[in-house]
Design a protein around this nucleic acid. Structure first.
Lengths: 143, 143
DNA sequence: TAAATACCAAGTGAACTAGTTGGGATTAAA
DNA sequence: TTTAATCCCAACTAGTTCACTTGGTATTTA
């Protein structure tokens, strides 16, 4: 049950941009270099994040990307869902009506998938980029 | 972050066999029919579960599969790990030394993946097949 | 006007998914 | 003793997804 590189790279990039929040636009190249990700590939992920309202962009020389909201207002969950879709372990617990199965009402495995989904949601929705910055500072100061 | 059909079908099959625990071998065909899974495909999954010690098999006519241990001693987690591998959202939190990344010690995203992994583990390791049977009985009796 | 950037769409090789196919070995029942 | 039911195993496969790459265009600053 691995996350794809979309979610993993995307969160890394968002974290990197958080570290520079308030400094104006950061070019994608420097984010890609810093996190060792293909710039062209990262471009696609960042494009999704921008369309979903997490990032703003400034075109042209000295341009780049910047967070559209303060780090404290962006959760890990919202980033991961933007890039990976719903974090449900099975289609039947995805909250859209498309994937309902016919044995719903007496399916015990569905209860298991719901518990997994809920516990993942609880974790990722409770961590903001600001929390990550704080943890990063703690690590740097050898706490 | 979907589970594959391996884990999903595998858990359904194990649950089905739990419902018949103590009744002797159950042919795979009836499990496949009951859960609407391709028998040939399920065979592959069940073969893994047998090799990992969750199932015993009886060959020949009137043969089939049966749980190697009582349902109360088999967790959802052990089944899913048998079929899907480690339930970690990223390679760097897989607990084997192969996938360590070089930026480990100051990687904040790793902390996020660890929290997700731990919360998934907590859920799946705390549910046994017996728990699923109990929930199933509750549903049937309309509780 | 050149360089630095964002933006966009299409192509691609490799791996994975979810099976299917085609057998063989073993055992109980007729 | 034959037949049917079952487990066991390995190889094949169409389709999808992954993780990019390629090749451009548009915009802005120096």
């Amino acid at each position: 049950m691995r996350l794809s590189t979309k979610g993993r790279y995307g969160l890394k990039a968002m974290f990197e941009l958080s570290l520079h929040y308030g400094e104006g636009p950061i070019p994608l190249k420097s984010v890609a270099d810093e996190q060792k990700i293909s710039e062209n590939y990262l471009e696609q992920l960042v494009s999704v994040l921008r369309k979903d309202g997490f990032l703003e962009s400034v075109r042209g020389a000295q341009g780049g990307y910047l967070l559209a909201k303060p780090p404290s207002e962006i959760t890990v969950g919202s980033i991961l869902r933007s890039l990976e879709g719903n974090m449900a372990p099975a289609d039947c617990v995805m909250d859209d009506d498309i994937n309902k199965c016919d044995r719903e009402e007496h399916c015990v495995t569905k209860l298991v998938w719901m518990k997994i989904r809920d516990s993942i949601d609880e974790v990722i929705d409770s961590i903001t980029l600001q929390d990550m910055i704080d943890e990063h500072m703690d690590i740097l100061s050898n706490k």
